[in-house]
Simulated scan of single mutants.
Amino acid sequence: MTAPADLSSRPDTDRAIRLWLLAVAALVFAMVVVGGATRLTDSGLSITEWKPVTGALPPLTAAQWAEEFAKYRASPQYQAINQGMSLGDFQFIYWWEWGHRFLGRLVGAAMLLPWLYFVARGRMSARLAAGTFAIGLLMGLQGFVGWLMVASGLRPGMVYVAPLKLMFHLSLACLIFALLVWTALRLMPERRREPVSDAVRRGGIAVLAVLALQIALGALVAGNKAGMRFNDWPLMDGALVPPMAVLFDKPSVFEAFIDSLALVQFNHRLVAYGLLGLALWHLLAARGTAYGKGATVLFGLIAAQAVIGIVTLMLVVPLWAGLLHQGFAVLVLGHALSHVFALTRAPRIAGLPAGRAVPAE
């Protein structure tokens, strides 16, 4: 009876496609960071029209700059906050928003053109072609969602984008990033994996789910500029739990969960503590197994992100700290996806005590 072939020795026929997907994921990461800079510099409403094709070109003449500036001067944000802004100041915020939109177009091209090449050459199965095409459709939807978000800030009486739309915009970006990374991981050459207990597997999935929730809650904090308030820690304005009248200072409970500066920050803090505790429990459950290292790195990244968040808050969200906090969140998400992928591909040993190693077969 012959021994089974070493799975790791199989030819890596999907390497080019995997590298393409990871490169697009890196562009999505860059777009999330630039989007954070656009938000932190209050640049997101500087371009008041959505022109997917002709908008790719920025103003090139003095007359074109004057026309764009006139459109911005008619916006509620300019009239309420930025009256008297110079053309140079306008150009600063315009370039941030234009760069964000340009990156979106670049991401779309980086997804579509190689996809057409791989399909034409027969390099992708029908299932993979359909899956990657669906990711491309989500990218198109993301562009439309981005415009709906900007449009919400151009309505009369609004000076910033709606926080709920910002949350959806960032969450969709993270979903696209996750699908790209997950699909690339599925194209890795098969290899033997150590068995894993259900407790460790479910713990890793739970950490990933709560991490996704925490990123969404962070978008609500950003959308409300709640990081500019309650800048002490571990207390909030000197209290462990702010008064109910401060937390629920909106006409309805739903509005408070979306728009209350105190409540959105308080929820972000509470889920951060829960995520840190859950990651620690997962680390302890996975110790001594083949997945202990991944769990340890995951806990370390989440702990580092918590420290970055506290520093960002106490410094009242300087640009560098805000960008670090948002970008690092996506990096944590990337490792969490890789860790959970390994757990879900491992053989299942039902009832195996958490923390007990399984010898290789």
Rank of each mutant, 00 (worst) to 15 (best):
V28W: 14
I93W: 11
T289H: 12
D198P: 06
E190Y: 05
L298F: 08
L261H: 14
G55D: 10
P76R: 05
R186W: 01
G277N: 05
M188E: 05
A23H: 13
V210E: 06
L185M: 14
P114D: 11
G108Y: 09
Y94W: 14
V32Q: 12
V150N: 01
M85S: 08
S252Q: 08
L164N: 10
G131T: 03
L352P: 11
Y117H: 06
G351E: 11
V330I: 15
V340Y: 15
H282M: 15
D232F: 00
P318N: 04
A5S: 15
G44N: 02
S252V: 01
S75V: 04
S125N: 01
H339S: 09
G88L: 14
L213S: 05
P359H: 09
P189W: 11
Y72F: 15
T132Y: 02
L19I: 12
Q64P: 03
K250V: 06
M188K: 00
L213N: 04
V161H: 06
A262F: 15
F168T: 14
G140D: 06
A256H: 07
L261T: 08
S9Y: 08
G88S: 14
E361N: 04
A209G: 03
V196F: 10
L137T: 12
G334I: 05
D12H: 10
S252A: 01
A272V: 01
D89S: 07
W182E: 10
H100Q: 03
W20P: 07
V119G: 01
D6G: 02
S8L: 07
A295L: 01
H339V: 02
L313Q: 06
Y160P: 00
E97W: 12
Y160V: 02
E97D: 00
F92P: 01
S197T: 01
G292S: 04
S260A: 06
S46Y: 13
N231A: 02
L40P: 09
Y72N: 05
F102M: 11
A56S: 14
L276G: 06
A23T: 14
L213D: 03
L343H: 13
E255M: 08
A80L: 07
L187C: 03
